[in-house]
Amino acid sequence: MPLIRIQNLARRYVMGADTVHALRGVSLDIERGEYVAIMGPSGSGKSTLMNLVGCLDSPSDGHYELNGKDVSRMTDNALADIRNIEIGFVFQSFNLLPRSDALHNVELPLVYAGVPRSVRRERARTALANVGLADRMHHRPNELSGGQRQRVAIARALVNTPSIILADEPTGNLDSRTGEDILNLFEILSRKGNTIIVVTHEEEVAQHARRIIRLRDGLVAQDAVNGNPRTVAARTESGPPAEPMHAPSGGVPPVIAT
């Protein structure tokens, strides 16, 4: 059973008399442990797909199964639980709470998971230490550099040991060197067995991933593993995925030097 199974997913935005077809029927499976890049020109529907995969939004049509659960017709509160347990988000603009320090930002998913205070403190500390920010726990976002902010966001995405890490243009607001650091961090997380989906419009970023899905006008234009196209038929009928699987682990990634 794939971790993500998407069938004919469509999302339309109705704006007055106009309807924007952001996704027109996307089907794809993603296995546990894959490192996938979603590419495409601006407006091709990458973020829309990402929001659906991250359960931030519900589709207009089609089906989405996450971990065997049909999440395309779930209520708001059920989706909140799924986001809390299964998904770790990394955003282009970091999306940290400006008035809270790094530690509290990382704690947040655990707060909403109902983890007791002392336990969540400890886990948040560990997660921050693992992204190399052990000495920045009590800094607020505006006291951190862009790269450090994105590390806090990654620590926050990892703290709940989610099934998937979703990153929408994670290097979009970073200079290329810092962006490279973040991508190296993803590389390590991937090797540890984490499932990672990165949205990007930059080739260099996408090249870090083993599988690249290209969207155009709300449809999948190309889906390739290490440069070799894979078809939907080949994927759904043959058992093992093209990519060798790593044992899934909630394992803790090693420290990266800044």
């Binding site: 708001d76 999306n95 947040l108």
Partner: peptide, 15 residues
């Protein structure tokens, strides 16, 4: 924005 962030991280309506 803060509400959006909290919701993305799993805050339910009640929270």
């Amino acid at each position: 924005k803060e509400i959006g962030i909290r919701k993305a991280l799993g805050a339910k309506r009640r929270a």
